[in-house]
Design a protein around this nucleic acid. Structure first.
Length: 281
DNA sequence: CATATGTCCTGAGAGC
DNA sequence: TGCTCTCAGGACATAT
């Protein structure tokens, strides 16, 4: 599931398409339900074909293609959600190939959107709509300060792990990195936000930056389902540095005493070490 | 208002 | 072997 490190890896590797012109967009036929394109596939094709890719950006877990056509700025906002991925080379199979962007004037002739589960969504947005999207998301997880995070959450009763995954609070953290960050911070995932004091908010922000930076350096995590691949078709390497995610029943790598434990929070699996992570107050 | 739950989707794996 | 069932979790709509 692409979270901030995986989408940042996509952004970096897709960047060579900047300067290319989009000459066509194809939606291959498939037995599967077509992915969502908003407002519609024809509208997206009409707006983008003939346009030039000006920039590739990331907004939390979303990847943005900035396209200029005939004086109009468009933002194509790509949400990979669970299994969506962008690739510059041939995707793993044809069945789940959802879109092909034909490019001219760059290093790569095509950009592919491949999505096994098909929950991914593409939105064509005007500058105004894109600005609205930015405003309803929290600051990027690599940039938010401890003060800003505490400001938003210190009176909340929600569990810290659930709150860190709220994109309106802080953008970019999903289920995997929420568990890994709280392990690094030594904080129990079920701790109510209002039980956290300033030193702990500072620790959470330090851990967020540390874990995300290391995960980006490793080009993200490819889990046992193997669906995540970077735009060159390669696996990430950060799964080898995980301490808790999907490690329930194993002895903790750090303390070698606790057994990694799984719990459900809001229908999602959370993993933690009961020895390394303080019990909630 | 804040917080919790249901929904979408496909493939993998378990159990029989 | 092949069927049915459960689970995985992004974002958002709807419910409490």
């Amino acid at each position: 599931m692409p979270e901030l490190p995986e989408v940042e890896t996509m952004r970096r590797q897709i960047t060579p398409v900047v300067g290319a012109t989009i000459t066509g967009i194809l939606r291959p036929r498939s037995t599967l339900r077509p992915i969502s394109i908003r407002p519609s596939f024809p509208a997206m094709r009409k707006a983008l074909c003939g346009g030039r890719i000006e920039a590739v950006e990331r907004l939390g877990k979303r990847l943005i293609l900035r396209v200029l056509k005939e004086g109009d700025n468009h933002a194509l906002v790509i949400e990979p959600r669970m299994t969506g991925s962008l690739t510059l080379l041939r995707p793993p199979d044809r069945k789940h190939l959802r879109l092909i962007f034909q490019l001219e004037g760059g290093q790569y002739p095509q950009l592919f959107f491949w999505d096994s589960r098909g929950l991914g969504v593409l939105h064509l947005m005007s500058d105004r709509k894109f600005k609205q999207l930015r405003q309803r998301l929290g600051k990027d997880a690599r940039e938010i300060s401890a003060r800003e995070l505490a400001e938003k959450l210190s009176r909340s009763s929600r569990a810290i792990k659930v709150a860190l995954m709220d994109q309106a609070i802080v953008a970019g953290i999903g289920n995997l990195y929420a568990s890994e960050i709280l392990f690094h911070a030594g904080i129990h995932p079920a701790t109510p936000c209002r039980a956290l004091a300033d030193p702990q908010w500072r620790q959470i922000v330090r851990s967020m930056r540390h874990v995300l930076r290391r995960a980006i350096e490793a080009q993200g995590s490819t889990l046992s389902d193997g669906t995540y691949r970077n735009p060159m078709g390669e696996k990430g390497q950060f799964q080898f540095s995980h301490y808790v995610y999907q490690k329930d029943g194993e002895l903790c790598r750090r303390c070698r005493t606790g057994t990694i434990t799984r719990l459900k929070q809001g229908g999602r699996s959370t993993f933690f070490c009961p020895v390394c992570q303080d019990s909630p107050k």
